[in-house]
Computed example of a mutant assay.
Amino acid sequence: MSEENFKIADIIFAYIKGTITESELEELTEWMNAAEDHRKLFQQIITSESYRDKDAVYRRFDSYYDFDRLWGTIRTRKRSMWKYVAAAAVIVLPLLVTFLLQMKQEGISSGKIALQPGKSLATLTLSDGSSKVLSPENFDLMDGSKRIVNDPGGLNYQVEDTSTCAETTYNEITVPRGGEYKVTLSDGTRIWVNSESYIRFPVVFQGDERRIWVAGEVFLEVAKDAERPFIVNTEKLDVKVLGTRFNVRAYPDEKCVQTTLVEGCVQVDNSRGEVAVLHPSEQLVYDVRDGNHEVREVDTELYVSWKDGVYVFVSQRLEDIMSLISKWYDVDVFYQNSAVKDMMFSGRLKRYENAEALLKVLERLGGVKFSVQGKTVVVEDE
Protein backbone atom coordinates (compact mmCIF):
# COMPACT_ATOMS: atom_id res chain seq x y z
CA MET A 1 0.00 0.00 0.00
CA SER A 2 1.47 3.31 -1.08
CA GLU A 3 1.98 6.17 1.33
CA GLU A 4 -0.59 8.21 -0.63
CA ASN A 5 -3.28 5.55 -0.17
CA PHE A 6 -2.55 5.33 3.55
CA LYS A 7 -3.09 9.07 3.73
CA ILE A 8 -6.38 8.97 1.81
CA ALA A 9 -7.62 6.13 4.01
CA ASP A 10 -6.85 8.16 7.12
CA ILE A 11 -8.69 11.17 5.65
CA ILE A 12 -11.74 8.99 4.93
CA PHE A 13 -11.62 7.80 8.52
CA ALA A 14 -11.55 11.45 9.66
CA TYR A 15 -14.63 12.09 7.49
CA ILE A 16 -16.45 9.15 9.08
CA LYS A 17 -15.53 10.41 12.55
CA GLY A 18 -16.49 14.02 11.77
CA THR A 19 -13.00 15.36 12.52
CA ILE A 20 -11.94 16.13 8.96
CA THR A 21 -10.16 19.47 8.39
CA GLU A 22 -10.72 21.94 5.54
CA SER A 23 -7.43 21.00 3.86
CA GLU A 24 -8.30 17.31 4.15
CA LEU A 25 -11.71 18.00 2.59
CA GLU A 26 -9.99 19.57 -0.41
CA GLU A 27 -7.60 16.64 -0.75
CA LEU A 28 -10.43 14.12 -0.44
CA THR A 29 -12.46 15.94 -3.10
CA GLU A 30 -9.48 15.98 -5.49
CA TRP A 31 -8.96 12.26 -4.96
CA MET A 32 -12.65 11.47 -5.63
CA ASN A 33 -12.72 13.56 -8.79
CA ALA A 34 -9.57 11.91 -10.12
CA ALA A 35 -11.40 8.67 -10.98
CA GLU A 36 -14.94 7.34 -11.03
CA ASP A 37 -13.80 4.28 -9.05
CA HIS A 38 -12.59 6.57 -6.26
CA ARG A 39 -16.02 8.21 -5.95
CA LYS A 40 -17.82 4.86 -5.98
CA LEU A 41 -15.44 3.46 -3.38
CA PHE A 42 -15.92 6.47 -1.12
CA GLN A 43 -19.73 6.17 -1.33
CA GLN A 44 -19.51 2.46 -0.63
CA ILE A 45 -17.36 2.98 2.46
CA ILE A 46 -19.51 5.67 4.08
CA THR A 47 -22.88 4.03 3.37
CA SER A 48 -22.20 0.31 3.85
CA GLU A 49 -22.36 -1.19 7.31
CA SER A 50 -20.08 -4.05 6.17
CA TYR A 51 -17.10 -1.70 6.15
CA ARG A 52 -17.66 -0.93 9.83
CA ASP A 53 -17.29 -4.61 10.72
CA LYS A 54 -13.68 -5.74 10.31
CA ASP A 55 -14.54 -9.45 10.45
CA ALA A 56 -17.06 -9.10 7.61
CA VAL A 57 -14.48 -7.35 5.44
CA TYR A 58 -11.90 -10.07 6.13
CA ARG A 59 -14.40 -12.79 5.26
CA ARG A 60 -15.26 -11.15 1.94
CA PHE A 61 -11.62 -10.52 1.22
CA ASP A 62 -10.53 -14.11 1.94
CA SER A 63 -13.37 -15.49 -0.17
CA TYR A 64 -12.37 -13.75 -3.39
CA TYR A 65 -8.72 -12.75 -3.25
CA ASP A 66 -5.30 -14.19 -2.58
CA PHE A 67 -3.46 -11.11 -1.36
CA ASP A 68 0.07 -12.56 -1.43
CA ARG A 69 -0.38 -13.86 -4.98
CA LEU A 70 -1.81 -10.52 -6.14
CA TRP A 71 1.19 -8.56 -4.93
CA GLY A 72 3.55 -11.20 -6.30
CA THR A 73 1.97 -10.69 -9.71
CA ILE A 74 2.40 -6.94 -9.42
CA ARG A 75 6.12 -7.32 -8.72
CA THR A 76 6.73 -9.69 -11.63
CA ARG A 77 4.57 -8.05 -14.29
CA LYS A 78 5.79 -4.48 -14.42
CA ARG A 79 4.10 -3.62 -17.70
CA SER A 80 0.62 -4.09 -16.23
CA MET A 81 1.57 -2.87 -12.79
CA TRP A 82 -0.83 0.05 -12.63
CA LYS A 83 -3.80 -2.13 -13.49
CA TYR A 84 -3.09 -4.37 -10.52
CA VAL A 85 -2.29 -1.50 -8.23
CA ALA A 86 -5.70 -0.02 -9.04
CA ALA A 87 -7.34 -3.37 -8.33
CA ALA A 88 -5.45 -3.68 -5.06
CA ALA A 89 -6.49 -0.16 -4.05
CA VAL A 90 -10.17 -1.00 -4.54
CA ILE A 91 -9.69 -4.02 -2.26
CA VAL A 92 -7.36 -2.60 0.34
CA LEU A 93 -8.70 0.92 0.89
CA PRO A 94 -11.98 -0.16 2.52
CA LEU A 95 -10.07 -2.81 4.46
CA LEU A 96 -7.56 -0.21 5.61
CA VAL A 97 -10.27 2.25 6.61
CA THR A 98 -11.99 -0.46 8.64
CA PHE A 99 -8.68 -1.41 10.23
CA LEU A 100 -7.95 2.20 11.18
CA LEU A 101 -11.48 2.54 12.54
CA GLN A 102 -11.05 -0.57 14.66
CA MET A 103 -7.66 0.59 15.98
CA LYS A 104 -9.00 4.00 16.98
CA GLN A 105 -12.05 2.43 18.60
CA GLU A 106 -9.83 0.15 20.65
CA GLY A 107 -7.75 3.13 21.71
CA ILE A 108 -10.86 5.04 22.75
CA SER A 109 -12.39 2.14 24.65
CA SER A 110 -9.57 2.12 27.18
CA GLY A 111 -10.66 5.53 28.51
CA LYS A 112 -13.89 7.43 29.06
CA ILE A 113 -16.39 6.86 26.26
CA ALA A 114 -18.29 9.82 24.89
CA LEU A 115 -21.00 9.32 22.28
CA GLN A 116 -20.41 12.51 20.37
CA PRO A 117 -23.26 13.92 18.26
CA GLY A 118 -23.19 14.20 14.50
CA LYS A 119 -22.14 17.20 12.43
CA SER A 120 -22.93 18.95 9.16
CA LEU A 121 -21.41 16.51 6.68
CA ALA A 122 -22.52 15.35 3.24
CA THR A 123 -21.32 14.55 -0.26
CA LEU A 124 -22.59 16.53 -3.26
CA THR A 125 -22.57 14.78 -6.64
CA LEU A 126 -22.84 17.17 -9.59
CA SER A 127 -24.47 16.54 -12.95
CA ASP A 128 -21.13 15.59 -14.56
CA GLY A 129 -20.56 12.86 -11.95
CA SER A 130 -17.90 14.74 -9.98
CA SER A 131 -18.23 14.92 -6.21
CA LYS A 132 -17.43 17.35 -3.43
CA VAL A 133 -17.42 16.72 0.29
CA LEU A 134 -19.57 19.29 2.10
CA SER A 135 -19.02 20.88 5.51
CA PRO A 136 -19.90 24.32 7.00
CA GLU A 137 -17.26 26.14 4.96
CA ASN A 138 -17.78 28.99 2.50
CA PHE A 139 -17.36 28.25 -1.20
CA ASP A 140 -19.01 28.82 -4.57
CA LEU A 141 -19.05 26.43 -7.49
CA MET A 142 -20.73 26.15 -10.85
CA ASP A 143 -22.73 23.26 -12.27
CA GLY A 144 -22.91 24.28 -15.88
CA SER A 145 -24.35 27.80 -15.79
CA LYS A 146 -25.89 27.36 -12.32
CA ARG A 147 -24.23 28.82 -9.25
CA ILE A 148 -24.16 26.84 -6.01
CA VAL A 149 -23.22 28.60 -2.74
CA ASN A 150 -22.21 26.78 0.43
CA ASP A 151 -21.89 28.41 3.85
CA PRO A 152 -22.60 27.49 7.50
CA GLY A 153 -26.31 27.71 6.69
CA GLY A 154 -26.11 24.93 4.11
CA LEU A 155 -26.17 24.56 0.33
CA ASN A 156 -28.03 27.17 -1.75
CA TYR A 157 -28.90 26.88 -5.46
CA GLN A 158 -29.00 30.31 -7.04
CA VAL A 159 -30.56 30.51 -10.50
CA GLU A 160 -31.46 34.03 -11.56
CA ASP A 161 -32.67 33.27 -15.09
CA THR A 162 -34.29 29.87 -15.71
CA SER A 163 -34.94 30.64 -19.38
CA THR A 164 -31.35 29.70 -20.20
CA CYS A 165 -31.81 26.22 -18.70
CA ALA A 166 -32.83 24.15 -21.71
CA GLU A 167 -31.89 20.75 -20.27
CA THR A 168 -32.82 19.25 -16.90
CA THR A 169 -29.74 18.24 -14.92
CA TYR A 170 -29.65 16.57 -11.51
CA ASN A 171 -27.57 16.76 -8.36
CA GLU A 172 -27.44 14.30 -5.47
CA ILE A 173 -26.66 14.74 -1.79
CA THR A 174 -25.67 11.78 0.38
CA VAL A 175 -25.49 12.22 4.15
CA PRO A 176 -23.60 9.54 6.13
CA ARG A 177 -24.43 8.21 9.58
CA GLY A 178 -23.58 10.88 12.12
CA GLY A 179 -24.24 13.66 9.60
CA GLU A 180 -26.91 16.15 8.53
CA TYR A 181 -27.21 18.91 5.95
CA LYS A 182 -29.51 21.73 4.84
CA VAL A 183 -30.27 22.50 1.20
CA THR A 184 -32.19 25.33 -0.45
CA LEU A 185 -33.35 24.34 -3.93
CA SER A 186 -33.63 26.67 -6.92
CA ASP A 187 -37.36 27.31 -6.25
CA GLY A 188 -36.70 28.35 -2.64
CA THR A 189 -37.76 25.04 -1.07
CA ARG A 190 -35.70 24.27 2.03
CA ILE A 191 -34.79 20.70 2.96
CA TRP A 192 -33.23 19.39 6.16
CA VAL A 193 -31.53 16.05 5.37
CA ASN A 194 -31.04 13.74 8.34
CA SER A 195 -28.36 11.11 8.99
CA GLU A 196 -27.96 8.20 6.56
CA SER A 197 -30.19 9.85 3.96
CA TYR A 198 -30.13 10.69 0.25
CA ILE A 199 -31.86 13.17 -2.04
CA ARG A 200 -31.79 13.60 -5.82
CA PHE A 201 -33.19 16.77 -7.38
CA PRO A 202 -33.08 18.93 -10.53
CA VAL A 203 -30.64 21.82 -10.43
CA VAL A 204 -33.48 23.86 -11.98
CA PHE A 205 -37.10 22.67 -12.01
CA GLN A 206 -38.53 22.42 -15.52
CA GLY A 207 -42.04 21.75 -16.78
CA ASP A 208 -45.29 21.64 -14.82
CA GLU A 209 -44.05 19.86 -11.68
CA ARG A 210 -41.23 19.90 -9.15
CA ARG A 211 -40.10 16.34 -8.38
CA ILE A 212 -37.32 15.05 -6.09
CA TRP A 213 -36.28 11.58 -4.89
CA VAL A 214 -35.66 10.74 -1.23
CA ALA A 215 -34.34 7.88 0.91
CA GLY A 216 -33.92 8.20 4.66
CA GLU A 217 -35.41 11.17 6.52
CA VAL A 218 -36.01 14.76 5.41
CA PHE A 219 -38.02 17.75 6.60
CA LEU A 220 -39.28 20.09 3.88
CA GLU A 221 -40.53 23.64 3.74
CA VAL A 222 -41.92 23.72 0.20
CA ALA A 223 -42.06 27.06 -1.60
CA LYS A 224 -45.57 27.86 -2.80
CA ASP A 225 -46.19 27.56 -6.53
CA ALA A 226 -49.82 27.00 -7.51
CA GLU A 227 -48.86 26.15 -11.10
CA ARG A 228 -46.31 23.45 -10.26
CA PRO A 229 -46.99 20.84 -7.53
CA PHE A 230 -43.99 19.58 -5.55
CA ILE A 231 -43.64 15.76 -5.49
CA VAL A 232 -41.44 13.75 -3.14
CA ASN A 233 -40.71 10.25 -4.44
CA THR A 234 -39.77 7.48 -2.01
CA GLU A 235 -39.48 3.82 -2.92
CA LYS A 236 -43.03 3.12 -1.66
CA LEU A 237 -44.85 6.47 -1.57
CA ASP A 238 -45.28 9.69 -3.54
CA VAL A 239 -46.09 12.82 -1.53
CA LYS A 240 -47.64 15.67 -3.55
CA VAL A 241 -47.93 19.25 -2.27
CA LEU A 242 -48.23 22.86 -3.41
CA GLY A 243 -46.69 24.66 -0.43
CA THR A 244 -46.37 23.16 3.03
CA ARG A 245 -44.15 21.94 5.87
CA PHE A 246 -43.87 18.20 6.46
CA ASN A 247 -41.53 15.34 7.38
CA VAL A 248 -40.85 12.15 5.43
CA ARG A 249 -39.13 9.17 7.05
CA ALA A 250 -38.38 6.35 4.60
CA TYR A 251 -35.34 4.36 5.73
CA PRO A 252 -34.84 1.11 3.77
CA ASP A 253 -34.11 -0.83 6.98
CA GLU A 254 -37.34 0.18 8.74
CA LYS A 255 -40.73 -1.51 8.54
CA CYS A 256 -42.77 1.64 8.04
CA VAL A 257 -42.67 4.81 5.95
CA GLN A 258 -44.03 7.90 7.73
CA THR A 259 -45.29 11.20 6.37
CA THR A 260 -46.03 13.76 9.09
CA LEU A 261 -47.76 17.04 8.19
CA VAL A 262 -47.07 20.23 10.16
CA GLU A 263 -48.67 22.86 7.94
CA GLY A 264 -50.69 22.93 4.70
CA CYS A 265 -52.08 19.87 2.95
CA VAL A 266 -50.47 16.88 1.24
CA GLN A 267 -51.66 14.03 -0.93
CA VAL A 268 -49.97 10.65 -0.45
CA ASP A 269 -50.10 7.94 -3.15
CA ASN A 270 -48.91 4.45 -2.28
CA SER A 271 -47.66 1.68 -4.57
CA ARG A 272 -51.17 0.22 -4.84
CA GLY A 273 -52.52 3.45 -6.30
CA GLU A 274 -54.39 4.30 -3.08
CA VAL A 275 -54.61 7.98 -2.20
CA ALA A 276 -54.81 9.69 1.20
CA VAL A 277 -55.04 13.40 2.00
CA LEU A 278 -53.38 14.67 5.17
CA HIS A 279 -54.22 17.76 7.19
CA PRO A 280 -52.05 19.46 9.84
CA SER A 281 -51.08 17.23 12.81
CA GLU A 282 -51.88 14.08 10.84
CA GLN A 283 -49.45 11.31 10.00
CA LEU A 284 -49.67 8.55 7.41
CA VAL A 285 -47.92 5.31 8.35
CA TYR A 286 -47.32 2.89 5.48
CA ASP A 287 -46.43 -0.73 6.33
CA VAL A 288 -43.87 -1.89 3.74
CA ARG A 289 -44.61 -5.55 4.55
CA ASP A 290 -48.30 -5.68 3.61
CA GLY A 291 -48.76 -2.41 1.71
CA ASN A 292 -51.44 -1.11 4.06
CA HIS A 293 -51.49 2.39 5.51
CA GLU A 294 -53.29 4.26 8.25
CA VAL A 295 -53.77 7.95 8.98
CA ARG A 296 -53.61 9.10 12.60
CA GLU A 297 -53.46 12.34 14.57
CA VAL A 298 -50.10 12.93 16.28
CA ASP A 299 -48.09 15.48 18.20
CA THR A 300 -45.88 16.60 15.32
CA GLU A 301 -43.09 17.72 17.67
CA LEU A 302 -42.28 14.08 18.33
CA TYR A 303 -41.48 13.55 14.65
CA VAL A 304 -40.04 16.85 13.40
CA SER A 305 -38.20 18.35 16.38
CA TRP A 306 -34.94 16.76 15.21
CA LYS A 307 -34.52 19.50 12.61
CA ASP A 308 -34.62 22.09 15.42
CA GLY A 309 -31.94 20.28 17.40
CA VAL A 310 -34.10 18.27 19.83
CA TYR A 311 -35.32 14.68 20.10
CA VAL A 312 -38.56 14.28 22.06
CA PHE A 313 -39.76 10.84 23.17
CA VAL A 314 -43.19 10.18 24.70
CA SER A 315 -44.07 6.57 25.53
CA GLN A 316 -41.80 5.37 22.74
CA ARG A 317 -40.32 1.89 22.34
CA LEU A 318 -36.69 1.60 23.40
CA GLU A 319 -35.77 0.02 20.04
CA ASP A 320 -37.12 3.08 18.20
CA ILE A 321 -35.21 5.44 20.50
CA MET A 322 -31.99 3.51 20.02
CA SER A 323 -32.50 3.50 16.24
CA LEU A 324 -32.41 7.31 16.30
CA ILE A 325 -29.32 7.31 18.50
CA SER A 326 -27.62 4.76 16.26
CA LYS A 327 -27.99 6.90 13.14
CA TRP A 328 -27.16 10.29 14.67
CA TYR A 329 -24.30 9.21 16.94
CA ASP A 330 -22.97 6.65 14.45
CA VAL A 331 -23.01 3.67 16.82
CA ASP A 332 -24.28 0.11 16.65
CA VAL A 333 -26.72 -1.25 19.24
CA PHE A 334 -26.55 -4.75 20.72
CA TYR A 335 -29.37 -6.15 22.88
CA GLN A 336 -28.39 -8.86 25.34
CA ASN A 337 -32.10 -9.52 25.89
CA SER A 338 -34.43 -8.70 23.01
CA ALA A 339 -37.36 -8.28 25.42
CA VAL A 340 -36.09 -4.83 26.43
CA LYS A 341 -36.76 -3.54 22.89
CA ASP A 342 -40.46 -3.14 23.73
CA MET A 343 -39.97 -1.19 26.96
CA MET A 344 -41.60 2.24 26.80
CA PHE A 345 -39.78 5.44 27.74
CA SER A 346 -40.25 9.20 27.63
CA GLY A 347 -37.50 11.79 27.56
CA ARG A 348 -35.88 14.70 25.77
CA LEU A 349 -32.41 14.89 24.22
CA LYS A 350 -30.69 17.92 22.77
CA ARG A 351 -29.43 16.77 19.39
CA TYR A 352 -25.96 18.23 19.83
CA GLU A 353 -25.30 16.85 23.32
CA ASN A 354 -23.48 13.71 24.40
CA ALA A 355 -25.95 10.80 24.22
CA GLU A 356 -24.78 9.42 27.56
CA ALA A 357 -26.93 12.00 29.36
CA LEU A 358 -30.09 10.46 27.86
CA LEU A 359 -28.90 6.90 28.52
CA LYS A 360 -28.35 7.74 32.19
CA VAL A 361 -31.87 9.15 32.41
CA LEU A 362 -33.28 5.95 30.90
CA GLU A 363 -31.29 3.91 33.39
CA ARG A 364 -32.68 5.94 36.30
CA LEU A 365 -36.19 5.25 35.06
CA GLY A 366 -35.39 1.62 35.74
CA GLY A 367 -35.37 -1.76 34.05
CA VAL A 368 -32.47 -1.28 31.63
CA LYS A 369 -28.70 -0.71 31.71
CA PHE A 370 -26.31 0.58 29.04
CA SER A 371 -22.61 0.12 28.49
CA VAL A 372 -20.49 1.43 25.64
CA GLN A 373 -17.81 -0.74 24.03
CA GLY A 374 -15.98 1.06 21.26
CA LYS A 375 -18.71 2.09 18.82
CA THR A 376 -21.32 -0.29 20.20
CA VAL A 377 -23.96 0.46 22.83
CA VAL A 378 -24.80 -2.72 24.75
CA VAL A 379 -28.33 -2.82 26.20
CA GLU A 380 -29.28 -5.22 28.97
CA ASP A 381 -32.06 -5.57 31.51
CA GLU A 382 -31.40 -5.03 35.19
Rank of each mutant, 00 (worst) to 15 (best):
M1I: 14
D53L: 04
W71Q: 08
A88F: 05
L362A: 02
L220S: 06
E301M: 14
C256D: 15
L126C: 05
V312G: 03
G367Q: 13
E319T: 11
T47S: 11
V285R: 13
N233H: 12
K112M: 08
E363H: 13
W328E: 04
S130K: 15
I108C: 05
V314L: 05
R272T: 11
I231Q: 07
S271A: 14
E319M: 10
F313T: 03
D225G: 11
E363W: 14
A215F: 04
T244R: 09
E297S: 12
G111M: 03
V85A: 01
F230G: 00
D253P: 05
F334T: 10
V203M: 11
W328R: 03
T123W: 02
R52H: 08
K78G: 02
D62C: 04
A35L: 07
N337L: 02
Y84R: 06
L126K: 13
L121P: 00
M344I: 12
V90D: 12
N138K: 14
I148V: 15
I325P: 00
V288H: 06
V275D: 11
K54M: 08
A34T: 04
A9M: 00
L70H: 00
V97Q: 03
V372P: 01
G207E: 13
A215K: 15
L41A: 07
V214H: 02
Y329S: 01
V310H: 05
L95E: 00
E254R: 12
Q43Y: 08
W82T: 14
F6P: 00
F67P: 02
T169K: 15
A14Y: 12
F99T: 04
Q267S: 13
L28D: 02
L101V: 01
E180R: 10
Q158I: 15
V257H: 01
D332M: 11
R177P: 00
E167Y: 12
E235I: 11
